[in-house]
């Protein structure tokens, strides 16, 4: 496993040309802020829900290539899905980051490109940041709140 594998083309593409990166979202239902103080990563994630589905999702913030690219790939994979399905897919991604084979590789779309990150333990939390933010946004929505802020530890 080399550094080139970590930063393969799909990941670099998402880093250089992120999808669904925006500071605002029309019809926003929930806004969460997630930070990773250890690396100084900051992420704002906004979702809009319609008919029990994730109608819109955007992220914004600062962070390393892995965190930004993973959030970008995540937004593509989860948009339009039922909320519970997003939570299930997030769990699949999380387990993949801990070395498991993903059970839904096709549904993860470009997220599958991050499988190799599992071999770089210090970068796993980078890849997880966006996914943990969308999970939190959905749980915040389900509990009836509109904002939530999370600081991740080591």
């Amino acid at each position: 496993m080399s550094l080139e594998d970590l930063y393969q083309e799909i990941i670099l593409d998402h880093y250089r040309k992120p999808k669904n990166r925006a500071p605002e979202l029309a019809d926003e239902d929930v806004h969460v802020h997630h930070s990773n103080p250890l690396c100084g990563d900051e992420m704002d994630l906004r979702i809009a829900v319609a008919d029990g589905k994730l109608d819109g999702v955007v992220f914004d913030g600062e962070g390393c290539s892995i965190s930004q690219a993973s959030a970008s790939a995540m937004t593509q994979a989860v948009k339009g899905r039922e909320l519970d399905d997003v939570l299930a897919l997030t769990e699949d991604f999380r387990l993949m980051m801990h070395g498991d084979e993903p059970s839904r590789p096709d549904d993860l779309q470009d997220g599958i490109a991050f499988q190799g990150v599992a071999k770089f333990p210090v970068r796993v939390k980078c890849a997880l940041l966006g996914w943990m933010a969308v999970k939190d946004a959905i749980e915040t929505y389900q509990s009836g709140d509109a904002t939530h802020s999370v600081t991740h530890g080591e």
Binding site: L3, L6, C39, G40, G63, C64, I66, Q68
Partner: peptide, 12 residues
């Protein structure tokens, strides 16, 4: 370039 990515490159 984020410092984290600089650190990973320098490690190589």
């Amino acid at each position: 370039v984020h410092p984290h990515d600089i650190g990973a490159m320098l490690d190589q």
